[in-house]
Design a protein around this nucleic acid. Structure first.
Lengths: 94, 94
DNA sequence: GTAAAGTAGTTTATATAATAAACCAAATTT
DNA sequence: AAATTTGGTTTATTATATAAACTACTTTAC
């Protein structure tokens, strides 16, 4: 009856991050932080987990002289998200 | 942009429990355990949390000579679930 | 030019949660 | 009547989320 919910995505912040990245070509640390309202520390940790799972790519660059961390979703991440949403339907469908 | 996800419902097992109870008049411990595949210990703990939050009612009775723990969703639980699902849409809507 | 404040993060520590393992009491089976 | 099963609860362990503290660098104000 109930499908497993990918624990990596079943986290408010990581889900929000992936949800953002699904819709854009890329997004930087500061933008994601603003959109989610997360603390920098928490965001840093969660981006790392998503990156280690291969769900996102993280590129460290500079915008002018300031460091700028750019994130992109990967095909793996996209698939995982789609599967998570599908599994979730078994819990929340009327 | 992102609505808060009620942490009490944002748990695979508690969400499954509430999801089951939404659809029936009542369900007992053994039935919920079978449907969710949870261990008895975990289920016991999570039912307790839902009960303490007023999301479900737990009635301890007997079926014949065997103890039987019957659970029902409350109006509060029903509302919380509806709100959780709505908030979740902001994360998973395309 | 240097002190103070701000930006963009990372690392570490702590609180909370999920889960499993161990346990208990009573019923059933052999 | 001993062993097993049922229906749970309690306790201990592991994992997770989060905040606090820190680092490295930049910009601004004196």
């Amino acid at each position: 009856m109930f499908r497993d919910l990918n624990p990596l995505l079943h986290s408010e912040l990581r889900l929000a991050v992936v949800s953002i990245l699904i819709g854009v070509e890329s997004a930087d640390f500061v933008f994601i932080r603003q959109q989610t309202g997360a603390t920098a520390g928490n965001l840093s940790v969660q981006l790392d987990k998503l990156a280690k799972a291969g769900y996102i790519e993280v590129e460290k660059t500079f915008r002018g002289k300031m460091p700028c961390t750019v994130c992109r979703i990967t095909a793996v991440g996209r698939d995982a998200f789609a599967e998570y949403v599908e599994a979730l339907q078994t819990y929340i469908k009327k």
